[in-house]
Amino acid sequence: MDEAATTPVEIPLIDIPAGKFGMWVFLISESMFFTGLIGSYIVLRLGSESWPRPGTILNTPLLGLNTLVLLSSSLTMALGLNAIQQGKQRQLKRYLLFTALLGSLFLVIKGCDYVHLWRHGFTLSSSLFGSCYYLLTGFHGLHVLSGVILMLYLVAAASRGAFAASQHVRVESSGLYWHFIDMVWVILFAILCLV
């Protein structure tokens, strides 16, 4: 079904494409999901008699590096959007690939971190902190994974020449999603590793 037939957009509430509007609604809902998880973490932690001091269990430098990896992937995403806004399709494709690669690197480091922690007896059921750590970072990791798949899908679409300077709603809304999971990670890093 072509888009013009289904979208007689005349007086939208906010003057942005429906795809971007829908993405914002989805992200509001996503932030409520993480609010549920993070809020539970805070309540469980404040209600516990003892809690491990930051830096005693988690490998803060490694996770800090991972934060940098994800932050730079947001940069490449933004550069990609900038490229297609100027109609540079090849550059868009390159930046999207970079973003996917950095996302995958994040997941690989995350995996090493999991294996290391698990071998040292820090598991899902070893303590409440363990449960919270794997739950929060696990759900975040799943979001990064879907983001990487989304990026690869965009790369495929870009190869077919699906985007142009005047037509890049999907790139823009996927970018919103990517920045969102980036931001969630920054919050997770702060509350899990730093405080």
Binding site: T7, P8, V9, E10, I11, P12, L13, I14, A18, F21, G22, V25, F26, S29
Partner: peptide, 17 residues
């Protein structure tokens, strides 16, 4: 829900305030 909100807010025909 995402569909309902987006459709009601963004796809109204002209004059349908």
């Amino acid at each position: 829900g995402i569909n309902y909100i987006t459709t009601i807010m963004q796809l109204r025909a002209p004059g349908l305030t």
